[in-house]
Design a protein around this nucleic acid. Structure first.
Length: 421
DNA sequence: TCTGGGGTCCTATGCCGA
DNA sequence: TCTGTCGGCATAGGACCC
């Protein structure tokens, strides 16, 4: 049996832990650059505001309705997530952290009543972190997700839905009441196609011909059908696999024109990506850079370009990767465009231990260089990101993203530590 | 003025050599 | 030698997730 534990309105709930005056009020958290709505409190959902809605279109309405906005504070969410996951890990020997706010726990071989245990989990997480969670329990991951959804939406469940405790008729009723698009793995496109074939509800999808589904859609959708029938087809993952690619991209606070400014942004992103790369002990054998104008302003001249280049030797060195990325930037940069976004991607990742030496490359400095990178990582960990950086990352950074409603870093910065009176 | 960021997996396609 | 086929591989793009 598998439990899915999920924090309700995670980002909003994190904000409320440290700003209790936000409880009961309509609150949204905005994406990077204060672009669109990425988390909504129950009050905001009730107003019909959609996930992903552009904030600039909502601002007037929000002001009228008294909606409170916060810029996203990822340092806070990452830290709170870590606390929640650590607590949840105590309840099962087998935990798969699926995203920043949810994880699967294996309840296999557990003697205790599952619903009781899930209630204990809810109380513990709430008491120790201040965050509300709901739990879905079922024989497959897809059903556990569905049960979690039901636990969240239907008050009588009191935050926990154990699928097996519903009768067959109740299970069917629940599935008939929900659109197929609510199922984990069925997105907008596939649910639209399913609807054309008369498959509207989850019950319809469960009853569909799995072989036909495989032919018309994909093996992924077929697995989902099996999972809905209680046949486990998506396994628990013990350890998170190493990343296959590492991407860092941002929209700019305002449009930028100069190659110099793009170079600063690219340097900053490479430094961040390389840091992640070193953290997982990998090296990158190729690297991509992209820049683009704002596609939401079709009347402006548009330009979007990216190039992927192989590196002579796979590396995790910030300086080397920066040099390569700036070289690529020179190739794709065109004057006269209003650039809105840029990014870098590190690809063809390999374990550092598996790197092949290069016959013609000097590596005399490589040990020194590794030490330098480690020192930079140490300094930035202790003093905050960007405390030490490559000069090409610049010092003005006029392209930095907007964060007009950023809260304090209550749990990760000493000077922001809340004071109790 | 103002529309996120970071991933994964799968399929289709085209090329190459056997 | 020519032609057809097939599997493997790389790549691009689409779909999904949060």
């Amino acid at each position: 049996m598998i439990a899915l534990v999920d924090v309700n309105n995670f980002y909003v709930s994190c904000q409320r832990v440290f700003e209790p005056q936000l409880n009961g009020k309509p609150v949204v958290v905005l994406s990077n650059n204060d672009g669109c709505v990425v988390a909504r409190s129950a009050e905001v959902k009730a107003m019909g505001i959609k996930m992903g809605a552009p904030w600039h279109q909502l601002r007037d309405f929000a002001r009228q309705q008294g909606i409170i906005a916060r810029s996203s504070n990822y340092a806070l969410y990452a830290d709170m997530s870590h606390r929640v996951m650590t607590i949840l890990g105590r309840f099962s020997p087998n935990q798969e952290i699926y995203s920043i706010d949810e994880c699967f726990l294996s309840f296999a071989g557990l003697l205790q009543d599952h619903t009781e245990l899930a209630q204990t989990i809810r109380q513990t997480v709430l008491q120790w972190t201040g965050l509300p969670v709901c739990v879905g329990i079922a024989p497959t991951k897809t059903l556990a997700k569905l049960a979690n959804h039901i636990a969240k939406k239907q008050a009588p469940f009191n935050g926990v839905c154990e699928w097996q405790k519903l009768s067959a008729d109740q299970q069917t009723e629940q599935m008939q009441a929900l659109d197929a698009g609510e199922v984990w793995g069925i997105g907008r496109k596939i649910s639209a196609r399913l609807a054309q074939e008369g498959i509207h509800t989850i019950a319809d999808l469960r009853a569909a011909n799995a072989e036909l589904i495989r032919k018309r859609y994909s093996i992924v959708v077929q697995r989902t059908v099996h999972e809905l029938r209680g046949i486990s087809s998506i396994e628990m993952e013990e350890a998170p696999p190493d990343k296959q690619q590492i991407l860092c991209s941002r929209s700019f606070g305002q449009a930028i024109y100069a190659e110099q400014e793009l170079a600063e942004a690219i340097s900053t992103y490479i430094a961040r990506a390389a840091e992640k790369l070193r953290k997982q002990g990998s090296v990158a054998a190729s690297l991509a850079v992209f820049i683009r104008t704002n596609p939401f302003r079709p009347k402006d001249p548009q330009y979007s370009q990216h190039i992927l280049v192989p590196l002579t030797q796979a590396s995790d060195d910030t300086l080397l990767l920066t040099r390569a990325a700036l070289w690529v930037l020179k190739r794709i940069y065109r004057r006269g465009f209003a650039y809105a976004k840029a990014g870098v991607m590190l690809c063809d990742l390999q374990p550092r231990t598996a790197v092949q030496g290069h016959l013609f490359l000097q590596t005399a400095d490589s040990i020194k260089r590794a030490a330098l990178n480690k020192t930079m990582d140490d300094i930035n960990r202790q003093w905050g990101r960007g405390a030490i950086r490559v000069a090409s990352a610049g010092f003005n950074q006029g392209w930095k993203m907007r964060q007009n409603n950023l809260s304090l870093h209550w749990t990760t910065r000493w000077e922001d530590l809340p004071v109790a009176h």
